[in-house]
Design a protein around this nucleic acid. Structure first.
Lengths: 174, 174, 174, 174
DNA sequence: GATGAATGAGTTTTCATTCAT
DNA sequence: GATGAATGAAAACTCATTCAT
């Protein structure tokens, strides 16, 4: 808390005027981060509707967001959630919204087979998210072999995800 | 350290009889975890050579290892590496070995296009690892929507990875 | 640190509000002690210029300071200097100042033989200091035979030092 | 204790076979140190009886002993004596013996004025010891200005002590 | 709205000492 | 005579949090 206070130019005490505890501050940061990510993903989705494969630009937007906002990303997805006080419901809703954006892109880009099964769609959106999360979290934590160009990994991952999204929908055909 | 000590039924001091510091204890855990993972992956690779797609069983083995050894997994891949200052040589070699097992499966299963380019192979092995890591780390951290069956996610992820591995090698052909 | 905290009626944490570490607290105490000693010695020197032998009153002031401020004295001159790694500049200058006061008294009281040789003067000031330090440190540590009156020892030591200062300057004459 | 054990090539436990506690080990070291010092001083006294001023060679022997056995010296005279268990009487007797050697030299070298007053003699022996202790302890602790040659300081101190011993005895004459 | 002073509970690590073998 | 395994008490230091102003 003191480090945060110093960074924002206030005393540590000042934070407690706005947040009950470290945890609630982090909750707020998570919410804010989720909103910012929503914005970034929505923009990517709408921007690409005509030009590029929407899933591809979503993936790129997700990874970019993570790499450009590593602190937010860590708070949102990496830090242990000291489970004492459960997250308020609406935060989950915000997180869900981001997953929905992926789901929508998968549905739009995929074949009707998946589209009709909303459970399969949610699973696949989660899968795509998990894959992207793996890439982002390892890059942020600098756990990737330093001899590797991060961009090569990112491109390979996005290619793989896009390919698997198509492939997958095809593979569900008889 | 005290918590660890209590869990193993010893005093905190006893740990220092065997390890110089918390850091070196964690290094040892990482090494041991890497070795166990190596074993699990190698076994999966050799077991499947005839029957199943080797990459598929590798993926399954990786995820199983993570879910069955969540503490090891966290120490190995999630915990903040205040740790990673000293001791690089050995530990990295062990971690690399696990990546090589994936690379070998990709090379064996893929087309010659990738096989001849060792850099592309390393990138792709890293990509597959990152994807699996995303799935495992989110499952361990219980960040997956509780309405989802973890097994569905796992199957979808493995399918996606296997599909993308084939797809990918094809897509690099002219 | 806890003992210090208890003595001053604060929590151990409170000390860290004012000092970065035990080391820096001790540095501050040393500086403060050196300053107080400077004051005591300067006063003694100026006070005695007319009346008593200045060296004699300096010696007395040094011993008095030590016996009246045994904690300062120990921190300044006895405690193991795990401390003396950083912060040399200022602290040393302050310590040197006290030695200079002795040197000045020796120069003023002595014959021209020593006065012209600044190296010899520094050596002799150091010698006088060392002798006084021996008396003070043994008295503080209560290592003197309890059957002995400390004042007798002190008078004998001061007499000896004053005598040797005269004697010494004479002995350097042809 | 462990460091000591390592240095002597035994386990820490082994020390407790011979000494009840750290304190009693240190007591033994002090006794041994006192004996060795006795030996060194006696030798110096007897050796010099004809040639040099006996007090001068005693002083030199004392300083040499300290500088050549700094660990003994620290245990004997610098380390805090954790007063819990009082020293056994006979240790004091050994320490006293060393003081007596100085007293004898002073008596032999001085005039009858002091010689007849055994209290004054004890005081003066203590004074000489204290002065030597100041020099030795500051040199061992490396608290002397590094620009100074230790030998110059030592010579100056010995000269001063010898001079003061003569001077002193004279000054007590009418 | 903001802060400096303060703290209790916690952290990793050290050390003298004990005990079963 | 000797030791490895073990420990309780203590060390310096950190951190989220509170409270009077």
């Amino acid at each position: 808390m003191r480090k945060i206070a110093k960074r924002i130019g206030y005393s540590a005490t000042a934070i407690y005027l706005h947040f009950d505890s470290k945890e609630s501050l982090f909750h707020a940061l998570i919410e804010q981060g989720m909103d910012r990510m929503s914005l970034a993903l929505s923009e990517a989705a709408s921007r690409s509707r005509a030009s590029e494969n929407p899933l591809r630009s979503l993936c790129r937007a997700y990874i970019d967001f993570g790499l450009e906002n590593p602190e937010y990303y860590e708070v949102m997805f990496v830090l242990k959630p000291v489970l004492r006080h459960r997250y308020p419901a609406d935060k989950y809703r915000r997180a869900r919204r981001n997953l929905d954006i992926f789901a929508e892109a998968l549905r739009a880009g995929g074949d009707p087979a998946i589209g009709s099964d909303s459970a399969a769609l949610r699973i696949d959106a989660t899968r795509v998210w998990a894959m992207l999360h793996g890439v982002v979290s390892l890059l942020i934590a600098k756990r990737i072999d330093s001899g590797l160009d991060p961009n090569d990994l990112i491109e390979a991952a996005i290619d793989g995800i896009v390919a698997s999204a198509v492939q997958q929908s095809e593979s569900t055909l008889p």
